[in-house]
Design a protein around this nucleic acid. Structure first.
Length: 680
RNA sequence: GGCGUGGUAGCUCAGUCGGUUAGAGCGCAGCACUCAUAAUGCUGAGGUCGGGAGUUCGAAUCUCCCCCACGCUACCA
């Protein structure tokens, strides 16, 4: 049996922050270190995801090539991971030749098997730049919130997922011109038929073994019915489509990226196929919750379509980590960056590892605060773990010249202590096997607590004068606990483990060897003791909090400027009076309003136009209460063709003004005017 | 609106198949101790288990309705 553990490929257009670490890299690292200690055959795979549109956008913005962008961030992330003790067997990258070949072959195999559906569609094309525009290259006015700077795939203001065709007044980010529609061919993965054939059945079989949040999300997707998904894009940055006559097309990044796990394994070992194709291999994907669909549905679909590959055994996705009560945001710089932490807190990798593991968002979103970080360091690592080790070593140095004393007769206190000693590894093991890393870590701390209690109960410092032999037994056991702690904490606190083992003058051991035997023999000479953890003072914490508050202050004016100036929609093309005069604009009064059933944003308005009373459905329910708009005079586009919305016929359209923040205001006459008055 | 996940002590969370008095860590209060980085140990206060109804001898746990948070999704001319 062998394990293949993957951690989500981080996207190479920005540095790593604590959310990435807590959600994915730390849990996977703990899991893998544990598997190694159990003597299991495990490979731990990760790498930079270096394709896709945002990287090309950043490159354009900074006036460099996409390769330069990814080189920078790839090196940065690789180094941060290493320094933080994330123990990948390989940290690869998707711009590597091996990956291009692997992804290319993968596509070709599926193509030759006739898996894909081929389809032509109309996409926006920039005639000046002479290329098809990726969704991100197109901006326009959001049909949802009227934000004039919405992207073709998503409006960042209201969060709505869009397609470029929905944008009002679209323009190319490259030339600034309005793009034209042109036909293009793409290949689709037929998830809909796969759902029927096997995917649904396979996923439903995971109900008992996968985390609830993960299974629930998959179930939700299945219930809505899967749709075919394009696996190619018109773009020049990525893995080229390996079919003749298809220049300017690449594999879509979601198709390309997970294959990166395979290429990385290839780059790591010639036996890569054992890990991917032998039935007794367990494939485990560690990811954040934003990646559930790709790893639970789409990638398995790809692997199955290819044939011979194992499907994931488990996908233990975490939820999100917040920071001081707010969502972590790269663009708003609201984050604790790993590379900055490593500079600000040198040699304190384990403190962050501890804090993030203890507060990891395993079952729901969780909050990281600097106060919590400080408390966990001072009250748990220093006071419980470090202090127990220190008092044990100090006592041993004082009474036994730094040699391990012999164990004598065992009383009840000793038996209780030995119970804790033998049960701790089992508890930690069980928790890790169930992907409960917070719980596992607390079992480690419980052993240190048991040690502190043992010392407090037996009081060797009092006994020494009257019964030095008893003290020898006590310290023998206490030292045995410190040795066990050094082995047991390795997956979580690898730096501390090493340091402690040096202090005890012992060698690293696999868990199978370490537990169940006495780690220290009488007479063993201990090494030099030092403190495992230092207190973190208030000053250091308030410095970090101030740093965050500064970004908050810096953020506000920038955003205001950007929405105030940059975001104003450019003027539209010239029109004629004839065109304008076709529109019948009238003053009307809202006489009734009600929420449309089963729609969050829709209000059904009844208008008095002076000539008739009519119904208009308007998407303004998020901006106004029903009560506050009744009696308001508004501008009505009266001769707009009727249209059914949610089963209600809408006759016309209410004109709204929109400020930079997406707030809507009625356009109305400066004074109350007769209903039906014309506007021209 | 639909779907998913969650709501348990001041904070972070556990709670198995429905079963006695709902637990842990941190924080707080008191006591003990002095080997230890004022660290440790013990004791205690603190809960209408989001709200309401139901099933049951018995509900944090099962059913229904509602509220709140996060995510997915629908409606938007």
């Amino acid at each position: 049996m062998r394990y293949l553990v993957t951690a989500a490929l981080p996207y190479a257009n920005g540095p790593l922050h604590i959310g990435h670490i807590a959600g994915c890299y730390l849990p996977s690292d703990i899991f893998v270190r544990y598997q190694r200690l159990m003597g299991r055959d495990v490979k731990y795979i990760c790498g930079s995801d270096e394709h896709g549109v945002p990287i090309t956008l950043r490159a354009r913005k900074e006036g460099i090539t996409p390769q330069q962008v990814v080189d920078t961030y790839h090196a940065m992330m690789r180094d941060s991971f290493k320094e933080f003790g994330i123990s990948f067997d390989i940290y690869h990258r998707t711009s590597d030749k091996i990956h291009h070949e692997t992804a290319s072959d993968f596509f070709t195999t599926l193509y030759n098997k006739g898996v894909f559906k081929e389809e032509e569609s109309e996409q926006y094309f920039d005639e000046e730049a002479n290329l098809f525009l990726a969704d991100r290259y197109i901006t326009g006015t959001c049909p949802n919130c009227s934000n004039p700077n919405a992207y073709g795939d998503q409006c960042e203001k209201c969060g709505k997922t869009l397609s470029p065709r929905e944008l009002i007044n679209p323009h190319s980010q490259l030339s600034g011109k309005a793009p034209v529609l042109r036909k293009t061919k793409h290949w689709y993965l037929p998830l809909d038929t796969m759902q029927q054939e096997w995917l649904q059945e396979w996923l439903l079989s995971k109900e008992d073994t996968w985390k609830k949040n993960v299974f629930g999300q998959c179930k939700s997707w299945l219930d809505q019915g899967l749709q075919p998904r394009a696996v190619t894009r018109d773009l020049d940055w990525g893995v080229p489509v390996p079919l003749p006559g298809n220049e300017g097309k690449v594999l879509y990044v979601w198709f390309d990226a997970p294959i990166g796990y395979i290429s990385a394994t290839k780059a790591l070992t010639a036996q890569w196929e054992d890990y991917w194709k032998k039935e007794d291999s367990k494939l485990i994907h560690f990811i954040g919750k934003d990646n559930i669909v790709f790893h639970c549905i789409i990638f398995p679909a790809m692997l199955k379509a290819h044939g011979n590959y194992v499907l994931p055994e488990n996908v233990p996705a975490n939820e999100f980590l917040n920071l001081e009560g707010d969502k972590i945001s790269t663009s708003r710089n609201w984050a604790v960056w790993l590379h900055e932490y490593l500079l600000d807190f040198p040699n304190k990798q384990d403190v962050l590892r501890y804090a993030l593991c203890a507060t990891a968002p395993e079952t729901k979103d969780n909050d990281f605060t600097w106060k919590d970080f400080q408390d966990r360091n001072n009250n748990e690592l220093v006071a419980v773990f470090g202090n127990f080790v220190n008092r044990t070593l100090v006592l041993t140095a004082k009474y036994f010249e730094n040699n391990v004393p012999a164990r004598g007769k065992l009383d009840d206190a000793e038996k209780t202590c030995l119970d804790a000693l033998t049960s701790a590894p089992k508890l930690v093991q069980e928790s890790i096997e169930r992907y409960r890393f917070r719980e596992a870590l607390s079992h480690v701390m419980d052993l240190a607590r048991a040690g502190n209690k043992y010392l407090a109960d037996t009081e060797p410092w009092k006994l020494y004068k009257t019964d030095p032999e008893k003290v020898a037994t006590i310290l023998n056991l206490a030292l045995e606990i410190t040795a066990t702690l050094s082995y047991l904490c390795e997956p979580f606190l690898p730096f501390t483990s090493q340091k402690l083992q040096a202090m005890l003058n012992i060698q690293p051991k696999s868990w199978t060897d370490a537990f169940g035997n006495e780690a220290l023999v009488a007479g063993h000479a201990l090494g030099e003791a030092s403190l495992l953890f230092d207190k973190i003072e208030d000053e250091e914490i308030s410095k970090q909090i101030q740093k965050l508050e500064a970004t908050k202050i810096n953020n506000t004016p920038v955003e205001e400027i950007s929405t105030g100036e940059k975001s104003l929609t450019p003027f539209k093309d010239v029109t004629t009076y004839d065109d304008f005069s076709k529109m019948d604009l009238r003053v009307a009064t809202i006489v009734a309003a009600e929420k449309v059933e089963k729609a969050d944003k829709l209000l059904k308005l009844t208008l008095d136009t002076g000539i008739d009373t009519r119904t208009v459905v308007s998407g303004i329910a998020l901006h106004f209460n029903v009560d506050e708009i009744i009696g308001k005079q508004v501008t009505l586009l009266a001769n707009l063709a009727p249209r059914k919305i949610r089963g209600i016929e809408s006759n016309g359209m209410i004109l709204m003004a929109e400020d930079g923040d997406g707030k809507l205001v009625f356009v109305q006459p400066a004074r109350a005017t007769k209903n039906g008055s014309t506007i021209a």
